[in-house]
Design a protein around this nucleic acid. Structure first.
Lengths: 213, 213, 213, 213
DNA sequence: TATGAATGAGCATTCATTCAT
DNA sequence: TATGAATGAATGCTCATTCAT
């Protein structure tokens, strides 16, 4: 008789609708302030469907995180050419990272802010992803360092440096939200100069030490 | 007959007790999962006292953030000797920062994770504090750079670099939580090497550029 | 297997159940001492339904007032035949009023006692209704008076007299609660005699004045 | 050393302070919305003193009602000259009543609205007072009626008429709050005309009856 | 598949009331 | 006498979650 508001859609499509809505809502209000009601409203899907397809709120949030984390990792690794030199790999990776963040602010918010601030499995998951990123960077550093010869102190420091680099990138991505006139490419370039050259000095034995302490 | 748990204490003391408990509870469970009941239990104070002295849950959280932010800033600025050279100032600042984080993990959790992940006034407040930190570092960079002569690109980049440095420090502080065998002093030293030397190169015109892109 | 207490009912029905229960509870305990828990219990409906359908406690009370006020007004105006003489209209109106109060004591309690004693919008609403009643009566008085000719003093007094009549009726309704052996018809008859004849005298210029004062 | 805010005052004075404050606060916010904190603040007396002198909130409210009711009754009976004719007694009584209400709006609010709307002992007390007033009026009516000769119907009606008169007066007092340009004397005069003359007709056998019903 | 109807359980907040001083 | 400090107990309200259709 009357038009049905939404047609019967295949499960796959419904799930995507729901996840899109959830990412949007979670990024806007944070995990706890987000209500399943709003998600269902934004998704145009009734709540029971959400539970049927994606489980509890926690499950839903987890699904969001996994999807966005995967997207981010794919974007970054997809931007890297393994046949290039380490510095160029890093360069492309950073470029891909900033490009992704620029184009998917909501995804980034969910990953960087919401997920980490929740204790337990969520932050674990994101921190694991960050760990993979750090390991990736560390591998590049080690590869370079080993080529040139790596002294004791530098060896032990590479992982920390990788962590610092990843942290820098994350922090710059945040900072970027308030300075949108800069291009992502510029950000990547700054970061390369800062980190790579400092790292190079380190490897070459040029070390900063406190004058007296 | 039996010992009374706590006697009538002056308001000031109670407020400190409550804030201590609140920081603990907020850092453990996050803002939303923290319950006023638990705060009151941990503080050894009934809920009405909390409301009488510190106001609503939101107010209480705000008070925590302000107190911890102030403590952190005081710790960092108190660690700096303004008569020293910029690099030494940075060195001491980083040292003080890592020392504070090492000694007040809960404070750091509340500030870095919980506060930022809540939208609105809380994250604003913390982000403002981070902004002050970035400005501080930026001033040091600019001072150094100007002495040596600063080319165009480097000038525009100092603020971003400062943001990156602050981000690195934050990220390292997080990383540290999972690698507690490292000393804060070592962390600071790595960071100095990474950042300061890279910055030095930058200032001296030694620039990294992509080979082809 | 066993009988289910209530099945899924359409919203409309539930709302009526809830309002019925609320009027009952509010009339028994007054606005403040009434608890939403009791309302939900009496209605046989869980609290979230109440909030979903009728809003906050304040909203719920307002809805009760509006419904009962409407019912009362409908009962009274429905009892009036506009084609009759003013005195007969008043007579029928009073009759309908007392009939309603006799049959809906709880409604009357809520309207007359609870609503008025709450400051703000509630009493405003009820006082507005009383105002309409007074205006109604006033119109009747004026109509009669004008026919017969109305001296200055009487003119200015009609509104006050109407207020007095309405007040009398309300007061008698209260008094009735403690003297239930009287019929509402008798009450109406007494009131007609008291008021209408006094009014008639007034209109005809037969005035009571203090002998010396 | 420093000035004490309030001196040690005799119990009597303190009690008056507290009652004055309580009447004010109760009339402003109603029984339930009034907080003991506000009473203590307005009275300039700490809460424990209130409890020591006047007992619980309920007790305090009861004390207010009793004091104000007594005042009102005293004002009214004090205004009456028993040696005068019944109509003049009523006239003076009404005058005293309106004078009191005009000069003590808060007292009247507490008595008329707050007290009655609370179930139980409070409204009982006030209703008892109203009962005394009704009885007083009734006695006047009966005295008059008996003198002139009183038919059956009228006899049974006098109490109801007295109730109606008292109700009119109360209602007019309320109405007055919104029409403060009228003098209390005028109100009393209107009421006398309305009621006394209608009553006179009644007594004289001039009865209003519905034409057909 | 899809949803309106329904709820258990929890949480922030308030207030009358009372100690300890 | 007088009070700042302290609390037990209650209540409004919300939200994730699940039936019955």
């Amino acid at each position: 008789m009357h038009v049905q508001r939404v047609k019967r859609l295949p499960r796959e499509v419904r799930e995507r609708q729901i996840l899109d809505a959830a990412v949007q809502v979670f990024s806007r209000h944070g995990y706890h302030n987000a209500s399943m009601d709003e998600v269902s409203e934004v998704a145009g899907v009734s709540k029971p469907m959400i539970y049927a397809y994606l489980g509890s709120k926690e499950d839903l949030f987890g699904a969001c995180i996994r999807r966005e984390a995967t997207r981010l990792l794919e974007a970054v690794t997809g931007g890297i050419r393994v046949e290039l030199a380490p510095d160029m790999q890093l360069w492309h990776g950073l470029g891909a990272f900033f490009r992704f963040v620029g184009e998917h602010r909501e995804s980034w918010q969910v990953l960087h802010r919401q997920a980490i601030s929740q204790g337990g499995p969520f932050s674990d998951e994101v921190l694991a992803m960050r760990g993979r990123a750090i390991a990736l960077v560390d591998a590049l550093l080690v590869r370079t360092a080993t080529k040139r010869g790596l002294d004791e102190q530098a060896t032990r420091a590479t992982e920390a440096l990788a962590a610092a680099l990843v942290g820098s990138a994350e922090s710059l991505a945040d900072w970027w939200l308030d300075h949108p006139d800069i291009t992502g490419r510029t950000l990547a370039s700054w970061l390369m100069n800062l980190v790579w050259m400092g790292f190079g000095d380190l490897v070459e034995g040029s070390v900063w030490t406190p004058t007296n302490d």
